[in-house]
């Protein structure tokens, strides 16, 4: 069986390598993409959109339709994770720790709960005492990571970055909070409902900006039609891209957190890494 697997892998790999021989060379000026499309983008991007980063202008403006459905795919991924993994049955047994003494209470009856506050705190089954150094360092670090994420989204027009990267960085700052404290801290800070709303809101912002262009007299995703709405009609396409990127950032941020919470807690949202 293993031998057969090796043969299949080698055959598929060989076929793929054989297929790459037909590709144009890296940076080949006579390849079809370079002869028709790239010239136009490189020459006209600044003139058309006033955005120095050509990659962003191609992603969010020239091929905005593509990015819109990419965002929809990310939203669907989060939705699929939620539908497959989310488990609304409560946990059967709970653990509480008495804070002043450190005594651990094991409540086997699922219906009985203790009020969590000054006296008791929630505890995971395989509980490790949270480390003060890790907690403190992460608490200092998280706001800076989030500001950096917002910078990546806002500065996507001028430098590498954009909605996807910024959203992922923001989402990973939330995940860092869950890892350094515990999952309950994150779930209590940002409710599941809020994350779901953010994921849908991101896609809606993108589609909304694209759709508003139509009653304003343009085509779908034609940001130039929005000129009467913005304060700086000269840069209308750059501003349209910024709005769209913010939408992508919202959606990606929420979906990353949804996927992480559902995977790590087996959909129960109570305990995890």
């Amino acid at each position: 069986m293993k031998f057969l697997g090796v043969i299949i892998v080698c055959l598929t790999g060989g076929l793929l390598l054989y297929g790459t021989t037909d590709f144009p060379d890296w940076g080949d000026p006579s390849s079809p993409a370079s002869t028709h499309l790239s010239d136009y983008y490189i020459e006209k991007t600044i003139e058309d959109t006033k955005v120095p980063n050509i990659v962003t202008s191609v992603l969010a403006d020239y091929r905005g339709f593509d990015t819109m459905f990419e965002t929809a795919v990310i939203f669907t991924a989060g939705l699929a994770c939620f539908i497959l993994l989310r488990d609304f049955r409560g946990k059967k047994e709970r653990f509480y720790r008495h804070k002043p003494t450190g005594v651990v209470l094991h409540v086997k009856d699922g219906k009985k709960t203790l009020t969590v506050g000054k006296e008791f705190e929630h505890m995971d089954k395989d509980w490790v005492p949270s480390d003060l150094i890790i907690k403190t360092v992460c608490r200092i670090l998280i706001p800076f990571i989030q500001i950096y994420a917002m910078y990546v989204v806002a500065h996507g027009d001028f430098s590498p970055g954009g909605g996807f990267q910024g959203g992922v960085i923001f989402g990973s700052s939330l995940i860092l909070l869950a890892i350094s404290y515990d999952l309950k801290t994150l779930v209590n800070r940002i409710k599941e409902k809020v994350l779901g709303i953010f994921a849908a809101l991101g896609v809606l912002i993108f589609v909304g900006i694209a759709a508003i262009c139509m009653p304003m007299g343009g085509n779908f995703l034609d940001y130039t039609a929005l000129a009467p709405l913005v304060w700086d009609p000269h840069h209308v396409r750059a501003l349209g891209m910024l709005g769209v990127e913010i939408g992508v950032g919202f959606a990606v941020m929420a979906v990353m957190a949804i996927i992480y919470i559902n995977i790590v807690s087996e959909g129960r949202h109570d305990e995890g890494l």
């Binding site: 992922v168 989402g171 990973s172 890892i179 990353m256 992480y260 890494l273």
Partner: peptide
């Protein structure tokens, strides 16, 4: 970054 965390989770 994120996919490694997903795998670890």
């Amino acid at each position: 970054g994120v996919s490694t965390v997903f795998f670890v989770a």
